[in-house]
Amino acid sequence: GDALLPAPQNISILSTNMKHFLTWSPVIVQGETVRYSVEFQGEYEREYANESWIPICECSLITATVCNITEDISATVAYNLRVRADVGARRSEWGALKGFFNRITTSLTPPLMKVIADGYHLLVELEDMGPAFQFCVLYWKKGQESRMQQKVVKEVSSAVHLDTMEAGPDYCVKAQTYVEAINRNSSFSQTQCVRAQGGRSVWL
């Protein structure tokens, strides 16, 4: 008879900046195309809906070994995830993620940032990382770190005006992200310094 199809192994989550992906090792069956299906279960399903599982249709009978689960992990609660394999009429048992996944554990990277001296105006351009992200921008005159100023940027659309600079001193800027849904910050970006010189941008 047909040997039982092994369940997918090495199931894990890759989660960075509130984008979450489930990955697993391929199930190898010589000469056959193996397809996979993913389901999730939130804390609500466990406690109030008879431990029911919900299929992710974008990851039903797929050949890839990765599934974008970002849209379904949309609450800060503990989720279970599982994957199974199909080859023709043969179907494996479910392979489950070891332990829960809560988006509070996502890794937050410092934001990409570009500091611009537009004449005497100190501007910063920030990477658009999605609606969940705010930015805390710190800026100061070089050598006067004790007089650092802060600006919170809640929505990124265009360059943000930080300050009007004096001619001569360098002005330095660094930024971090903040995700209110999980109440966490990233580490700070590299510091970038610029100087105003009569309307010409100078990179240091």
């Binding site: 939130g42 399903e45 109030y48 809906a49 249709c57």
Partner: peptide, 27 residues
Amino acid sequence: DKVFKHCKTEDSYVNRKISSIANSFLS
């Protein structure tokens, strides 16, 4: 406690969105 569990539909997409709302409400 009462509402979400009785809202299961035949539409997988609708069920996923209800799950999102339910888990956010639970939080």
